[in-house]
Amino acid sequence: MNNSATARANILARLKAAPRTAVPERPEWQPPVYDADERVNRFASVIEASHAEVYHTSADAWPALLAEVMQRHGLDSLMYAPGTVDGQQVATAWGTLEQAPALVPYDRPVEELKDTLVNGVAAGLTATRAAIAETGSLVLWPTAEEPRLMSLLPPVHVAVVRAETVVDTLAVLMASQHWAQQMPTNVVLVSGPSKTADIEQTLAYGVHGPKELIVLIVH
């Protein structure tokens, strides 16, 4: 776009013609640090305070627990990612259960799955790359196998968190995993179900995203 090129040249010329000032140093700042044995509990209690439902479980037991929790909530279907470890585990485990919610795979582009995603599925299951103790946040790192919308459009989002992936803060996580060198298409931090306080500062859940967030912490 030609106009944009002219605008670019003019804007940068004006900015560069302005007097230069010294670049200040970043003063010391330490994000909070928690005891290793407190970390997971803190994560759980903070995200619970943000209206998430938290369950502690084990590597083998979580699919059955999820089926039970979903039945209790009256949720009859789960969208899952058939290409992920967690997706395969839930599919295998639920295959042996007498009663389990229906499994709906996110196995093709959104264009072919829009109706199901927008209106046709009760919950969506995702893994998490990490979780943050300070703010009670899940770190979602969507991939081709586990797309973005499965944690967003269904009314309930179920996230599996491995206890050993809980870190103190976002700052520590970004540095230790070298995010700056490998940012994917999309990363999202999730700290509770969708909410709003736009009407008289009264909290209401599920305005656009999930109304409920279920977190399974796998120890």
């Binding site: 298409t185 999202v188 969708s194 909410k195 995203g209």
Partner: peptide, 10 residues
């Protein structure tokens, strides 16, 4: 302490 969602779009 944090918003419910923090999107990072690259």
């Amino acid at each position: 302490a944090i918003t419910t969602y923090v999107n990072m779009i690259s």
